[in-house]
Design a protein around this nucleic acid. Sequence first.
RNA 1: GGAGAGGUGACCGAGUGGCUUAAGGUAACGGUUUGCUAAACCGUCGUAGUGAUACAAUCGCUACCGGGGGUUCGAAUCCCCCCCUCUCCGCCA
Length: 423
Amino acid sequence: MIDIKLIRENPKKYHDGAIAKNLGVDIDKLLAVDKKLLAGKKQLQQIATEKNAIGKSIPKLSAEEKPEALAKLADLKSKEAASNEEVNALQPQYDDLMGKVPQPASPDVPYGEDDTENVKLRKWGTIREFDFTPKDHVELGLDLDIIDIERGVKLAGTRNYFLKGDGAMLHWAVLRFSMDFMIERGYTPMAVPLLMRDEAMRGTGYFPGSEEQTYQMERDGLNLVGTAEVPVTAYHSGELLKEDMLPIKSVAMSTCFRREAGAAGKDTRGLYRIHQFDKVEQVIIAKNSEEASIEYHKEILANSEGVMQAIGLPYQVVNVCTGDLGRGQVQKFDIEAWMPSRDSYGETHSASRFYDFQARRMNLRYKNSEKKNVFCHTLNNTVIASPRILIPILELNQNEDGSITIPQVLRKYLGGKELITKK
RNA sequence: GGAGAGGUGACCGAGUGGCUUAAGGUAACGGUUUGCUAAACCGUCGUAGUGAUACAAUCGCUACCGGGGGUUCGAAUCCCCCCCUCUCCGCCA
């Protein structure tokens, strides 16, 4: 949600911002509705003032004066009803339009249509050259009996899988390593509910817009989250925080559910695009400050790069272009890990900053030093998402005999094991 | 699933038709006292919208006691619908 005052002051910025993001919103119409709505509300206010004045005088009036006053009131009431009807008709239009106005991207964001126009910022690590023909993670997993996609599909449909033995252990190892990594950096670990009310989905900006991507429990009016960002960011929604509580840095591990509607036929092989995965997510709730937001954005990106470097996965960081940004995001940096089987970098992390877009929607505020109530800023980033991250881990660490060398930092989570071999 | 209770300001909690923005308390802020801390005492302390003035200070108006509607000259207070929370019983990881 954007502050209507800012839109009134600078409609062009929001109009152009929406176009850059490929998200159509009729700003002119919004302003027209806003103008009418405001006029209607002012009129209602004026009527109320008169009504209140007459109402207050009633007990003091004489018997002769009373009927006149009551007649006046009746007249005002009918006027009020008419204005009210107008306002009630306009309000939903206004709310609908307002809910769709995107947060304009930062000037640092490259202009572009879609993910093909994202701009590479930097690369880390060297891409391994194989002196044998490498297998992809599906083959490796099958041969080692640590990934079973066939039975996942048999029991749960396409894009489902089982992890077994060291596969399951490796999956948990990256998650636990990531949790430990973040906790050491001062982030508060959270275990969170995964079924969220619509309100939380709206507050974080997923609704309206991503209903198709969400598993909805219609009978209960709840939604399976696609990321722990939802419960963690909305944790303090509707609250007035104290300034000295900020920033609140949290890290949560959760299962994530995505319908992948509209992705039919895309990334169908292996563990890349699946309906259910586990993710460690970092969230920062911060003061309302652009500079601070930018700083924290760097911090959460650095955290994730730190994890990638510790595991030893080559990656690149991209500055996501306008057309590939979500409605609320000011700027987004993706980390993409090198995946031999795709012969390219594949997205594994996504670091976003929102300014007060989410906070406004969920009424998340704090009292600042001037005793004013202001909306917080929110940010989030993946720390690690598995099993997608197992793709580069397995493929890059495979040996000619089909075994996998476990990255050093993960070994302690597999009882010190160094190698995954065929049983 | 059965039965009951309840949703009031940052928080707790009074308030059952009119001078109620809402008692009292906590927290916060300013001050007095004090060697320091604490305590005590005094004072300040709602949000949003809108208007006047210069976008500041300030002043005025309006709305807001879960949400929506109704009764009434007038509603936190009465009526209806919805949402949410809690308690007890049952079932159960």
